[in-house]
């Protein structure tokens, strides 16, 4: 079996193959629903309904998409430079910790000043977390996949320590959680009465900003050159290591914004279950979006919709929510395959 490249794929191919991927994903999910003893059509209907069937459901999906956009952007930015940041989870928690440290009364500022300050501080913390691994990579050639991945566990245990110790809420009835943010440190809701907060708008803005950086600035050009051919970039005088460090700072900062937005927009305090793996899901989001920052918005909405929809479905039908994990994973695999086959034809023997 081998692949023969197609220079100019037809429109039918461009649209058809991703559609086939979607159908395959749905079939896989249907089979699982059947295995669980439920009607697959009803199950899928409930997922769609749960994700977008009502105003409440839709807003819930947007809410869930918010951290995924941030972590998806973090992965997309880093992967573009071939910097494999698998540690968005740690950077997310770093952002959350700093938000709580400064937002629970340490800084008595009005909201319009305090919120940007918290966001900035969170970004710096996330960037700082990634600085170590990237310096180890550029100076000593240490594989950043290993260091960033393992940092996730270090960070999670560190947060666990903080919540049992110095940051434990004295009024928390013994639960491992932090004190609540002061009202000035809370991101207001976009629509009064509904859970959607301004973090979502910030995520859209971040995606746009990343897109502008990648396509319109010298840094974006450098990042792409380093990612595509680091040796040619170095030969041409592009400071490869400096670009790597800048990319890492950007990536870490974006992941940390997920933590800031979850704490300040949704939860109001820090607990150990702040992120159900948003950092890792961000990798899927970025890959599904082919590392395109604007595509990250769409793929984050898709992944969030599947999870929110599956949550709601499992309450109505007796199918476990794990179907959401399988749906997103299948979607990623089939979509990556479909996009590869858009530009190449398979020849058997």
């Amino acid at each position: 079996m081998r692949l023969e490249p197609i220079a100019n794929p037809t429109l039918a191919r461009r649209i058809g193959l991703p559609a086939v991927a979607l159908v395959l994903t749905v079939i896989a999910a249907s089979l699982l629903a059947l295995l669980a003893g439920a009607n697959p059509f009803a199950t899928l209907g409930l997922i769609v309904q749960g994700a977008a069937g009502s105003k409440f459901a839709l807003l819930e999906t947007l809410n869930r998409a918010t951290p995924l956009i941030f972590t998806g952007l973090a992965a997309a930015v880093a992967f573009r430079a071939r910097l494999w940041n698998i540690g968005a989870e740690a950077q997310l928690y770093a952002g959350a910790v700093v938000t709580v440290l400064l937002g629970t009364g340490a800084l008595g500022l009005p909201a319009p000043l305090l919120l940007p300050l918290l966001a900035l501080a969170a970004m710096l913390a996330g960037a700082a977390i990634l600085l170590g691994p990237v310096l180890l990579k550029t100076r000593l050639g240490v594989d950043e996949v290993v260091t960033t991945l393992l940092f996730n566990f270090i960070m999670l245990l560190f947060v666990s320590y903080l919540l049992e110790g110095p940051m434990k809420d004295p009024m928390g009835m013994g639960w491992p959680k932090s004190a609540a943010l002061i009202p000035e440190a809370r991101l207001p809701r976009i629509v009064t009465g509904l859970r959607l907060h301004w973090g979502f708008a910030l995520a859209l803005l971040a995606a746009l900003a990343v897109w502008v950086i990648q396509t319109r600035t010298t840094l974006g050009y450098e990042i792409r050159a380093v990612g595509l051919n680091a040796e040619a970039a170095r030969f041409a005088g592009i400071p490869v290591n400096r670009v790597m460090v800048k990319t890492a700072l950007l990536s870490g900062g974006l992941a940390a914004l997920a933590g800031f937005s979850e704490v300040a927009g949704l939860k109001g305090n820090l607990t150990l279950d702040l992120s159900p793996g948003f950092g890792y899901a961000g990798i899927i989001v970025a890959m599904l979006a082919l590392l395109n920052p604007l595509g990250v918005i769409l793929s984050a909405l898709f992944v969030a919709g599947v999870f929110v929809g599956a949550d709601s479905m499992s309450r109505a039908a007796a199918v476990p929510t794990y179907i959401a994990d399988i749906l997103t994973a299948t979607a990623l695999l089939t979509m990556v395959l479909a996009l590869r086959l858009t530009h190449a034809r398979v020849r058997w023997r």
Partner: peptide
């Protein structure tokens, strides 16, 4: 290897 970026 060092003169061009193939996908640029």
């Amino acid at each position: 290897r060092s003169g061009t970026v193939a996908d640029f």
